[in-house]
Every structure is written in C-alpha cells, then in structure tokens.
Design a protein around this nucleic acid. Structure first.
Length: 362
DNA sequence: AGGAACGTTAGT
DNA sequence: ACTAACGTTCCT
C-alpha cells in the first residue's frame, strides 16, 4: 500500500499527508451542507464517493501529522521546547515541497545553503538540497507526469483570509431534490436496495483497475547523503539565491536587505510554529468573530518589513543562512490559486480580490 | 483542464 | 475499528 501515489514522489521517504490544523476558522466551521462535497456526504444524503471536506471548511494552514518525524534523526518537531526563533526553526519539522522530505533544518548540515521557505503554509519549504539542484516544484510535477497540482503543492490550500463569506449564494438552501443525475458520470448505478457501496464491484472495469504502481526500485537521488550535504554547500550559493528574486524588482532587493530579511524570516517562522501548535489561546468568550491570523500571515509582516529595516547601503550581510521567501512569482501563483478556489466556490475573484487591504502585494 | 472517484492515511 | 478527508488517478 505504501507504494502507489503517496510514495511515488517521495523518493526520500514516505510522504506525509497533511491534516487540518483544526484551529483556523475554516476548520472550526461546520459543514455548509450545500456545496458539492457536502451533498456528497452520506450525512447529507449523498453517496459518499467524493470523500472531500466541505468547501467552506478547507483548512487554511494544513499541518504535518503528529506522526511526522524527521527523516534524518527520526525525531518529531521540537520547536516548542525552545524559545529562540532560530532554535525553533532548527527544531521544527520542515517539509520540502519538491522532494517531500520532512526534516529538521538543523539535521541538514547545510548551514549556508539556501532554503526557500513557503510562508503560506506551515512547515513548508523548498529544502536547500533541492533548491541547490535547481529543482522547482514544477520540475518535478511536470517531469513525472502530474504528481501534485499544477502549482506545486497548494492545491487546496487557499490563501484567503477566511472562508468565502456570504456574498451571493447561488446555491439554493435546499436542493429540493438531487435529481441532477444528468451530467454526473456515475460508473455505478446506485441500487435502491444496496445503497452506496464502497467499491464498485460489479462490472465497472473503468475504475476497477488497480493503480499501476511504479516500480519502487530506485530513487536514491534525493537521499540525504552526507557527502552531498556537507560538500554540496557552496559558500557562494548566492548565485542560486538570485533566482528567488528573479528579475522582478531587481534593484529593490539588495543583498543588504538579506539581513533584515533573515530576521523577518525568523519572525514569520515563529508565527508559523505558533500557529501550528498554538496552545489554544482563546480567551474565553468573544472568540467568535475575531479575525483569524491565519490568513494575513504574510500580509502584515510584509507591510512591516518595509518600514522597519533601513536599507542602508553597505551591509556586509554574511550569507550564513540565506532563506529567501517565496518569490513574487510564487506569490502571484498563490493569488491565482486563490482566485481559482473562489471561482470554484462560486464567487468571483474580482469581488474578493485582495485589492482591499493588500498592500504588500505589489 | 476540470471534475469525480478512489485508495489510503490520520485522528478519534 | 470507524470516520473524515488528503492526494492521486482516471474520466469527461
């Protein structure tokens, strides 16, 4: 079982499925009962084939399962055992969006390597190894066919602030009769007496076939080879790092900024860590409609960074550990993704566009 | 390309 | 063991 898809790309280890954080508003909401997924649920009278969560309950910050452990040391995340942000970062488990490896940054002996931290998803980054090799999430995704989403990894992780508000509701409060059996492709006709079956067992050769799992024979390329990590650390990885800045605002980002960047990075990371295992703040009652921090994770920080750090020229900026944040392109990618999700939910992206308070966007 | 279905994993 | 739901594959 561990073969098929889940492992296909996880050459470096069993890939861990993410689970809901249970803290964001989306996670705390209840099913709308109106979306397609809800309607599919047995509890709402559906066949239960889709097995998806309510559209309004898409977690905004999926976390690593509690069983996740570092592929190097086998330990779980221990970021909450320390106070220092830097330590937290080192002890936190990070999942690489490219090789899917979950590891403690500190277990990678690549102090100078560059890792691209995805500040949109907790414990998510492009590990130094992969980045050094110039890999990108797209490379992998496209290379082997389609492993993940076209975007790399954020398939369902929407970056919106909160679940789609009310807006217009094209959905009728009551389906009044799910007689929409017209365009659905049911390979299996529901039998009135049997009810929904788990598997189609009865002449549905279409989906009946098992997945042709790939040959688990090789896949050593991404192993954590000591040689690779220690020797593969080019002190001047800056060359690669430039990629993150690409040609976007070229002049805007100077190496001098990196220092403050680093700091910012740590701050952000701290937030992520807190987010993940927040001891349930809550304060009592009024936690009903407060804005969840989840979403604006980067927004707020982005805005601050501008004023806080003084880009005074000539900052040595020792490339000790350069962690670039996701490039602008990536960010846009996220936006597009969000739009898509909104559209998916039946909302126009234009309406919700972050044009509102989104200052950092541009 | 998008949507649906499914196997499998994660949490209870 | 059961239920929920994630991630991938297949179909349309």
């Amino acid at each position: 079982m561990s073969g098929s898809k889940a492992l296909s790309g996880a050459a470096s280890g069993a890939r861990r499925r993410r689970t809901r954080c249970r803290r964001c508003q989306a996670c705390m909401r209840s099913e709308c009962g109106e979306c397609h997924f809800c309607k599919d649920m047995k509890k709402f009278g559906g066949p239960g084939r889709m097995k998806q969560s309510c559209l309004l309950r898409q977690c905004t910050a999926p976390v690593l399962p509690h069983t996740a452990v570092c592929s190097a040391c086998g330990e779980a995340g221990k970021e909450d055992t320390v106070d220092s942000e830097e330590e937290k970062f080192s002890l936190c488990l990070m999942e690489c969006t490219i090789c899917n490896e979950i590891i403690h940054p500190s277990c990678l002996k690549m102090g100078k390597a560059e890792g691209i931290i995805n500040d949109e998803i907790p414990n998510c980054w492009e590990c130094p190894k992969c980045h050094k090799e110039g890999k990108t999430s797209k490379d992998q995704a496209d290379g082997s066919g389609k492993r993940r989403m076209d975007n790399g990894e954020v398939g369902r992780w929407k970056l919106t602030d909160d679940p789609p508000p009310k807006k217009k509701t094209p959905l009728s409060p009551e389906e009044g009769g799910r007689a929409e059996g017209s365009h659905k492709r049911k390979r299996e006709k529901e039998q009135p007496d049997s009810g929904p079956k788990k598997k189609m067992k009865g002449g549905h050769e279409k989906r009946l076939k098992k997945k042709p799992k790939q040959e688990p024979g090789e896949s050593n390329g991404l192993l954590v080879s000591p040689a690779g990590s220690s020797g593969g650390v080019p002190g001047s990885s800056s060359g690669v790092s430039s990629s993150s800045q690409s040609g976007a605002a070229g002049a805007g980002t100077s190496s001098a900024d990196q220092r403050s960047h680093h700091r910012e990075k740590l701050e952000r990371f701290k937030r992520m860590c807190l987010l993940e295992r927040r001891p349930e703040s809550s304060s009592s009652s009024s936690s009903s409609s407060e804005s969840d921090s989840e979403s604006d994770t980067d927004n707020s920080l982005r805005g601050e960074q501008g004023g806080g750090s003084s880009p005074s020229s000539a900052s040595p900026v020792p490339p000790s550990s350069v962690f670039s944040s996701v490039s602008r392109a990536e960010r846009e990618r996220g936006r597009a993704e969000r739009d898509r999700r909104l559209a998916e939910l039946g909302f126009s992206a234009s309406e919700e566009s972050e044009g509102g308070g989104e200052g950092g966007g541009r």
